[in-house]
Amino acid sequence: MKKAGKENRSDPGTGKCRLYFTRDYFRKKSRGLGKHLLLIFFSVLALFPIALIFMNSFKQKKFIFAHPFALPNAKTFSLVGYHTVIERSNLFVNFENSIIVTTVSLFFILLFGSMAAYALSGYRFKGNSFFTFYLAIGIMIPIRLGTASLLKLMSSLGLVNTLTGLILIYIAQGLPLTIFILSNFMAQIPGELKDAGRIDGASEYRIYWLVLPLVRPALGAIGIFTMVPIWNDLWFPLIIAPSAKTATITLGVQQFLGQFVSDWNAVLSALVMAVVPILLLYLFFSRQMIKSVTSGALKA
């Protein structure tokens, strides 16, 4: 790209560009190749650490060190790490907890968030600007800074070491961005639609219910920016709900890694088991997610 630019004789001094017929077929072709090479380089960089862990988790210990870059084969194959993880860890309970926490949080984030976004984007009323601003503060200020008092609050509500405590925090944490994204989407919905509903005598609640399916494209963006951080959070599980019964997968893996730090097979297998579900989910939804993000959900 750089090279091609150099050969273009434009006049940077005046800022005026003139037409040169120098970009022939071959240069275009090679530039396309260069772009691909760059993209391939960065993609490999993104993929390689995960692939490395994945490959080596299926090898016997001595081959992990001896040939880290070799694919497992009949001679080096071993599942001992997975056996250790399944026997010694709580990962299945952790999975269950993570799934409960994430889905329940997401459900309420979407429900409460879409209700608030509907009110803020669909009606002009006194205090609209105030509520819009008030609910947006949380996008910038991390909830973590309130950990000290959250902990006290949770313990006075008797919600420490419960998934409910975690869920409530995640709902509060997820709402600001969700409301922001959904408001943007809902503002794009043509007013005629709602007016038509009103003429038919539908209640405002009914109209909300009609509008709701129309923001489906925004779900991908919310998934990426709200759900993934909940699934991956270490902080609140560590502080609010660290017990064995309530530990989420991220905390469970962290503790397992701490305990089995010198058992390489177990460590690699645990990493793979923690990575695979979220990766599958991502690969499955990535097109939708990215489309949703790029469709203008985050336009300021």
């Binding site: 902990l151 006290k152 949770m154 313990s155 420490v160 070491n161 560590l238 502080i239 609010i240 709900a241 660290p242 017990s243 064995a244 503790q255 701490g258 305990q259 730090v261």
Partner: peptide, 25 residues
């Protein structure tokens, strides 16, 4: 009885936070 260890270097910090929040064993 459940034995629930934390790696040595993190133990005290984690324990203190759990005690503070009432989540300790």
């Amino acid at each position: 009885v459940v034995f629930s260890p934390t790696p040595p270097a993190e133990y005290n910090g984690v324990l203190n936070s759990k005690l503070e929040g009432g989540t300790a064993g």
